[in-house]
């Protein structure tokens, strides 16, 4: 099979890549105006239940205060682990006695509302992507995403699967990738240290990125999720 050019990795002819990221908002019929979302896929009754506000980028606090906040954020990472694939099994050694991430101030958190790191553990199928988007949007910012496993980066061994997305960063912003199939707990911890560095440097602004390029992300999500039956943005 030669779908991929061996040397450059660029797919051959006849392939429709997702909408290119040109920075401008694509004109979609589901966008009423710049302020509200239409939630067009929901029934009229359901539209009443959900908020139609768009996410807005949040301004960081005043310099030194933000630095202090970032220090607190970096030292109190609460993880929402989404065990999408086999890589999620690595979270168990992480929280138990051998690698014990709680000494770094991290702890697993069972609800997206309270977590600040979204850990995606493995391949992402379309069905899971729906849940990922929902959980990600329900997290309160600033929120960070760590994608563990090769499958989350480029499809890994599921590169030719009909139901697995490659490149999660086209659907939600990802701060840190951890390679490996599956990565050792040490590698995951190295990923978290990297995330800490990013937060301390004030560079982990995935939430603002998501808010700014919301239309691009939404368009990508809707392109692969064919039965979109949830609100456009469920905070």
């Amino acid at each position: 099979m030669s779908y991929m050019d061996k040397t450059t990795g660029i797919p051959e002819q006849g392939i429709t890549p997702p909408i290119p990221d040109t920075g401008e908002m694509p004109d979609r019929e589901w966008r009423k105006d710049d302020k509200t979302l239409t939630n067009a896929e929901l029934t009229l009754e359901e539209q009443d239940w959900f908020c139609d506000a768009r996410p807005t980028p949040a301004k960081p606090a005043w310099g030194p205060v933000e630095k202090f906040y970032n220090w607190a954020r970096a030292n109190s990472l609460w993880i929402l682990a989404f065990g999408t694939g086999c890589g999620a099994i690595e979270l168990r050694p992480l929280v138990t006695a051998r690698y014990d991430i709680s000494r770094l101030g991290m702890q697993p958190r069972p609800t997206p509302r309270q977590a600040s790191v979204f850990m995606i553990g493995g391949y992402v199928s379309i069905k899971t992507l729906k849940r990922i988007v929902r959980s990600y949007e329900q997290m309160q910012g600033p929120k960070f995403v760590v994608a563990v496993c090769s499958c989350a980066i480029n499809g890994g061994m599921y590169w030719d699967s009909y139901n697995t997305v490659k490149r999660i960063d086209q659907y939600i912003p990802v701060d840190v990738y951890v390679t490996g199939c599956m990565p050792r707990p040490e590698a995951v911890m190295a990923g978290f240290s990297k995330l800490k560095e990013l937060i301390l440097a004030g560079k982990a602004e995935g939430q603002n990125l998501y808010a700014e390029k919301f239309d691009w992300y939404k368009a990508n999500q809707k392109q692969v999720i064919k039965d979109w039956n949830m609100p456009d943005y469920n905070w």
């Binding site: 309160q140 910012g141 600033p142």
Partner: peptide, 14 residues
């Protein structure tokens, strides 16, 4: 204490 600071430093709340 760090947890409390972090929680209060969140930018959004629902």
């Amino acid at each position: 204490f760090i947890d409390i600071i972090k929680n209060n430093a969140k930018r959004t709340a629902v």
